[in-house]
Design a protein around this nucleic acid. Structure first.
Lengths: 231, 231
DNA sequence: GTCATCATGTAAGCCGTTACATGATTGC
DNA sequence: GCAATCATGTAACGGCTTACATGATGAC
C-alpha cells in the first residue's frame, strides 16, 4: 500500500523523504497522511529490494559555495562522508527499473480486490498507468461493490431507530449513491475513450461498439484523456 | 475505539461475541467490520477491567432439554463446567456500572479530537448518550474541520493535472461539501432542540436564543429528537 | 544567537489482521 | 452422517503511530 504510493510518486519525480511525506498527505485519498516512522522504514525496504535508489542530489549549488564561514576541509570531508546527500542532508530517491516492475505488479495485483476505500482511491490515483481494460475492470468492480452496499444501507435505514444512528446511516446511503454516480460517469468516460481509440485504430466507423448506453457522455472533453502517459 | 463500540452496543442489549461482531460490522461507520482476533481479546480486556461481565445465558431452554442422544450425566457435567455459557457455548456479556462509566469517559474524551472520520462516525452513533452541549461542540468541531478540508481540496483541484487524480480530488471536494451540508443540518437540529427545551424549561418565549440564523429548520420533525434517551 | 522549519532516523508499542485450532447445532 | 453455520478462542505477524534523538539551514 504505502510502497505503491511511494513508487507512484517517485515515477513522476525524484524526491526525498520529507517531500514525499507532504505529497502523500495531500495527493492521495489518504487524508491522514503518513508518519516518518512509517515512511522511512518503507523507503529502506524499497531500497533493499532495489526498487528505489538514492540518486546524486542535483540541487543547483550556491554560486560561491563553501568559502566563508565553513572551512574548506570540513566541507570536503562532509561531501565525502555523506555520499549522495545534498547540502542539507537530503537523500533524494529515484525509482529503478525494478521499481517500475514492482509498481506495476502492486497496482494490478490489488485492482482485483478493491473492497477497501483507501485502496481503491490509491489505485484510481494511479489509474493512468493501468491498461484500459484493467482500468475498466477496476471501476466495474467498484461499481458492483457500491451497488451491494447501497442495498444494504437502504435496508438498514428502515431498521435503525435512534436519531443519530439513523442520520448516520442515511448519510452513508447518500454517500454511496453519490459515489455510484461518480463511478458510473468514470465508466462511461472509459467506454467512450475506448470506442474512440477503437474507431481511430480500425479506420472504420464503429457505431455501437459495446452496449454502451450513452453514445455521447457529457463529462468527456476530448483532449483530456491521454494526458500524461509518458513516464 | 473498539472498546467504545462494544460498550455502546452492550448498553442496548446483552450479547455474545459473535452477535457483537455482526452488529459492529453493520451498525457503525466501520464498514470493514472487526475480526474475531481483535474482538475476543477486547472483550477479555474489558472483562478484566470489570467493564463487562458474562451473564447468565437466558436462552429459553428447549422444552425437553437434554434427554435423548446426550447422556444426562454428561449434560450436567457440562452445565457445571461451562458456568455462564448457554447451550451452544455462547458467552453472553452485559455491561456493568464500571462499564457505563468507562463508556462515558471514552465517549467524551474523544469528542475533543475528532479529526478522524471513523472516530467521528462512531461517536456520532452514540451521540444520544452525550449531554447536548458536548454534542453540539462535537458537531461544530467537525464542521470547522470540514470547512478547512474543503478549502484545501479546492486549492488542490486547480493544481492536479492527471485526469484520474483530478477526478478523485474533485470527488473528494464534492464529498466534503456534502458532508458539510449534512453536519450543518444536524447542528441546526441541535440548536432547535435546545431552544425548544429551553422554552419549555423557562416557561418563557425565547425567540432568538443564540444567533441561530434559521428559526425554523427544515429537517426537524418534533417527535424525532428525544427518541430514546432512556438507558 | 535563537527559533522555526527542514530533514532523517530509531524504538516501543498499539491495534488489528490472517491463519490456525476447536467444537456445538441445525438442516438436509 | 455430513456440510454449513454458529461460536470461541490463540499465535504470529504486519503496519503504522508516538515519542525520542539528532542535526542542518534560514530568517530575524
Amino acid at each position: 500500500m504505502l510502497e505503491l504510493a511511494i513508487l507512484g510518486l517517485l515515477k513522476e519525480k525524484e524526491m526525498h523523504g520529507y517531500e514525499l511525506k507532504k505529497r502523500l498527505a495531500e495527493t492521495l485519498g489518504i487524508a491522514t497522511g503518513v508518519s516518518f516512522g512509517s515512511l522511512y522504514p518503507a523507503l529502506r525496504r524499497l531500497e533493499s529490494a532495489g526498487a528505489v535508489k538514492a540518486v546524486e542530489a542535483r540541487e543547483a549549488a550556491p554560486a560561491v559555495p563553501l568559502s566563508g564561514s565553513l572551512g574548506g576541509e570540513l566541507a570536503a570531508l562532509r561531501a565525502r562522508t555523506v555520499g549522495v546527500r545534498s547540502s542539507r542532508g537530503k537523500k533524494v530517491y529515484g525509482i529503478t527499473e525494478r521499481g517500475q516492475e514492482l509498481f506495476a505488479e502492486l497496482l494490478e495485483a490489488g485492482s482485483q480486490s478493491s473492497d477497501d476505500d483507501r485502496t481503491f482511491n490509491l489505485r484510481l490515483a494511479f489509474a493512468r498507468y493501468l491498461p484500459p481494460d484493467a482500468r475498466l475492470g477496476m471501476l466495474e468492480r467498484r461499481r458492483s461493490y457500491l451497488l451491494e452496499r447501497r442495498i444494504q444501507l437502504r435496508a438498514r435505514v428502515a431498521q435503525v431507530r435512534d436519531t443519530y444512528m439513523r442520520s448516520l446511516v442515511e448519510h452513508d446511503h447518500e454517500s454511496a449513491e453519490h459515489d455510484l454516480g461518480w463511478i458510473e460517469r468514470l465508466i462511461e468516460r472509459e467506454r467512450a475513450a475506448a470506442a474512440e481509440a477503437g474507431a481511430a485504430d480500425g479506420l472504420q466507423a464503429v457505431d455501437k461498439t459495446e452496449g454502451s448506453p450513452n453514445p455521447d457522455p457529457a463529462g468527456l472533453r476530448p483532449g483530456e484523456i491521454q494526458e500524461d502517459s509518458r513516464r
